[in-house]
Design a protein around this nucleic acid. Structure first.
Lengths: 180, 180
DNA sequence: TCAAGTTGTTTGGGTTGCCAAACAGTGGCA
DNA sequence: TGCCACTGTTTGGCAACCCAAACAACTTGA
């Protein structure tokens, strides 16, 4: 169906995404962002940030002031906002719908935020808006799920129950051979 | 809250996970797996597989026959089954709950399957089981969501609507500074 | 004013994971 | 028997990323 290595064929790498988001966040909070600030926020050295940003400037995603203040181009801004929005909606999905703790949701979304497609993220957003619309259907669903969740075997992963479910889904979608 | 670079502090790398899953899938389908088979399935050279598997053998995840047939140790098997199950439940979540196309769901899950925590994956599994339990709440929710989904602006990502939602979630969870 | 701290850059090193190419071993088959 | 196809391994290269360390160019405060 497609090549499994598409995982790193994204518009920007995980690293680059974090650099862009860091600049956006620093700008939002302090009104400016410098190499050192980005390095501190990301927990890496100034040298690494300096090199990475050189590349991002080359790609036209990051700009630099005459006073060494960093900024984002329109495209860089768009990417950063997209990644930030994806993280938030995924976090909302995990917490509000699935009942995952905030700590865990944060860990999970941090890893996948930049990998999820726009389409899927948009749908997650819609689902979340629906969930928050106060619809009768939505609230009852959540209640039902919470109740249901307390029943199953909560031991480890994957539980036998979940493995059976996984096999079932695999049979249904009938992945053609060689797709991964 | 935690270091953003945890993204690559996983028990096994994305690459290693795919090698293990490939062996499991080949074994399921043909009853055996060799270096060449894995290479063909993953679309990389035999040399690369040879080197990677040397490492996985060293970690005790992969075994080798006297006839050069590959196998998985208990731990390797556990990891492979876990990743495969995660992929399937996430795919189910995206398709059945969010209405994402199979093609897109496949692309998305392929990228994140090995990154999602056991806890979150288990909860996704429970939600999916609930969805398939035929519960009145579940089916009504899906219907309501489908209807709701047709209303919003479907232009690009992130739409203004979704960005607003993201900001809202961010305000609620109130991420402490320096968490990324 | 001048020493001390901060800033951004450069350089050499290390890791992971891929490829291409060269080898060597094995099996079939004419 | 000898050739061809296939298998698995090794080697040198390359591209991302990271760090540590050394620099030069500022601020800044006593």
């Amino acid at each position: 169906m497609h090549d499994w290595r598409e995982y790193d064929q994204n518009p920007v790498s995980h690293s680059a995404a974090h650099h862009l988001v860091a600049i956006a966040e620093l700008f939002d909070e302090y009104g400016y962002a410098r190499v050192s600030d980005v390095a501190r926020l990301l927990g890496i050295t100034r040298g690494s940030v300096s090199v990475t940003l050189k590349g991002l400037k080359g790609k036209g995603l990051v700009t630099e002031d005459d006073r060494r203040f960093l900024g984002l181009s329109d495209e860089g801004e768009r990417i950063a906002r997209g990644v930030m929005a994806k993280k938030q909606v995924l976090k909302g999905l995990f917490m509000d719908l699935l009942g995952v703790s905030e700590e865990q949701a944060d860990l999970d979304t941090c890893k996948i935020e930049h990998l999820v497609s726009d389409e899927t993220a948009a749908r997650v957003g819609r689902a979340l808006l629906f969930l928050r619309s106060g619809s009768e259907n939505a609230t009852r669903f959540i209640e039902g799920l919470r109740e249901f969740g307390r029943q199953g075997d909560a031991e480890g992963f994957p539980s036998e129950e979940v493995q059976e479910l996984a096999r079932e889904i695999a049979r249904e979608t009938e992945e053609p051979e060689g797709s991964r």
